[in-house]
Amino acid sequence: MNNNAYTLITGASSGLGREFSIQCASMGMNVMMIALPGSNTFSLAAQLIMEYEVDVQVFEFDLTDSYLLVRTLNELMNNFEINFLINNAGIGGTVSIMESSMESIDKIIQLNVRGTVLVTQTLLPHLLKQQKSHILNVSSMAAFTPIAYKTVYPASKAFISSFFLGLREELQGTAVSVSVVYPGPIMTNSGVSARIVEQGMKGRIGLLSTKEIAGIALRQALAGKGVIIPGFWNRINHRLMSLLPTEIKLRIVSGAVKKEMAIR
């Protein structure tokens, strides 16, 4: 590992992004944390610097601001060496499409799709100059089937899967290795945790902690693996669901989401 290089992590202040930041620092990597303003990122950065004796840089801004995003990334490339990009930032939601505002729909598309592609395309020439570099992208098990009452979110994660697996093939033979991780359910906040608990055993199948998911994703991405599905039950679920016609998968998964909404 190049001790002068940095790992850039989007959505780095909470949930899976926070755990990526901690584990990368514990592996001796210098870290660039990108998060929304007011995310308490500087406090985590100070903790990582003190505990792991690595350099941590913090940049707080909204990734959906394309002009600011490109300007900031260009400044970073001019001043730092980056050899690992972790595209983690993303948002979702469970709501009927008729009850969802255009602003919330647009936010998912702007962050999950446009922002992620823009970060990658802007940094790619820099990553290609490195002796060896990696791009790790957070998709979701939701990418494998359409889901009613979520609609935009799984579509955005399917985009992440398709885009980056295509990019992986495009970059074969270069210095850049591209990986996609597909987490199952994660207890990232109190709202998500409550919904998982309400679903009982069915909701908890495939459930892993952010620590477990980040550890698996980092190890396999650094080893050059393209498709990463953390957890035995998630891999079994993916294989079984892949045998079903789309209409049946859609009905099964969407039915579970509809019941979840009725409980709330």
Rank of each mutant, 00 (worst) to 15 (best):
V119N: 12
T120D: 06
Q121A: 11
Q121R: 15
T122C: 08
T122S: 12
L123T: 07
L123D: 10
L124M: 12
L124P: 05
P125N: 10
H126M: 09
H126F: 14
K129Y: 02
Q130S: 14
Q131I: 10
Q131W: 04
K132T: 12
K132Y: 06
I135D: 09
N137M: 01
N137C: 13
V138L: 04
A142W: 00
A143C: 09
T145E: 07
T145R: 08
I147H: 08
A148L: 07
Y149C: 03
T151Q: 04
T151C: 11
T151Y: 08
Y153C: 03
Y153E: 06
P154N: 09
P154D: 02
A155L: 13
S156Q: 12
K157Q: 05
K157R: 12
A158H: 07
F159N: 10
F159A: 13
F159I: 07
S162C: 10
S162K: 09
S162W: 05
F163K: 08
F164T: 07
L165T: 15
G166T: 10
R168C: 10
E169G: 11
E169K: 15
E170M: 08
L171T: 14
T174I: 09
V176Y: 14
V176N: 10
V176S: 12
S177R: 11
V178W: 05
S179E: 09
S179Y: 08
V181K: 01
P183L: 01
P183Q: 02
G184V: 01
G184E: 03
G184H: 07
I186H: 00
I186F: 00
M187I: 00
T188D: 00
G191E: 11
G191L: 09
G191S: 11
V192D: 00
V192Y: 00
V192M: 01
A194Y: 00
R195I: 03
V197D: 06
V197P: 01
V197A: 03
